[in-house]
Amino acid sequence: MSSKELDLRQMHDTEFPLPMEMQGNVAITSLSKIYNWSRRSSMWPMLFGLACCAIEMIGTASSRFDFSRFGMEVMRATPRQSDLMIVSGTVTKKMIVPIVRLYNQMPEPKYVMAMGACASGGGPFKEGYNVVSGIDKYLPVDVYVPGCPPTPQALLYGLIALQKKIDGQSLANLDDVPWYGVGPSEPTPIPILGPDIIDPRQMDLIRRQAELAAAGMPVGVRELPPVIKTVKAIPSKAAKAAVAEVIDEGEAQRREEIMRRRQAVLARKRARDAAKGA
């Protein structure tokens, strides 16, 4: 529950007008709105830190920044009681296995926040042999918070962004609330620590590659798409000529016209200022 008291006027969500004297006491609202409001105001993150970002996450939870103001004070150490997984730090291949297990144990609705550069895309350690290039290779991410590490303010902004996302969800739309769909949702397959980390979803591809390798074909490297040719440095005169070629006649005239008008305005302003000064 947010520390600010519930303002019923904000909850009011209908065309139906309320008499003046009842405003503040009564609100008529949609089920989606009240449902979203209660979820977004008690978003319990998992007490789960990976690396440097966890320090800033604790900083955000501490008294100075205090994210309990937004209904997030209850950090749960067990995934079974948490709504939000803040992936706060570098995800390594060794650690992705427990992370996916934890995610699968979280009850729905559940959200994932990628905090910091590493969780978003590998960050400064991306090239490392034990580093997963972002948690989104395995789990669906709702909010990315940039920074290395993000400041507490940035994390708070990310959490508020998540609340906004929840506000926009509708109970009438199963795409928004898939956990009310028919049947249980599929757990994310747990990666295997083989000779390198193995994503079970890529098993077919790995098998095909192994067959290629057995046939003596080169494997593992993808043909790159053709890249834009690097523009060589152009000497300044030639550059001007090249640019002039691009600008057509009409364009040049328009530019001149704009320039003339601007200068006229500027001249009037100067005259006015001079008169004032005198």
């Binding site: 290039s133 290779k137 790995i206 390798a213 593992g220």
Partner: peptide, 20 residues
């Protein structure tokens, strides 16, 4: 981007004689 070059699209590399 390094992922574009890698056939698996992620930071993995398997030995050539990988026996599944």
């Amino acid at each position: 981007r390094a992922e574009e070059k890698n056939i698996y699209g992620s930071n993995v590399r398997y030995p050539a004689d990988f026996d599944l």
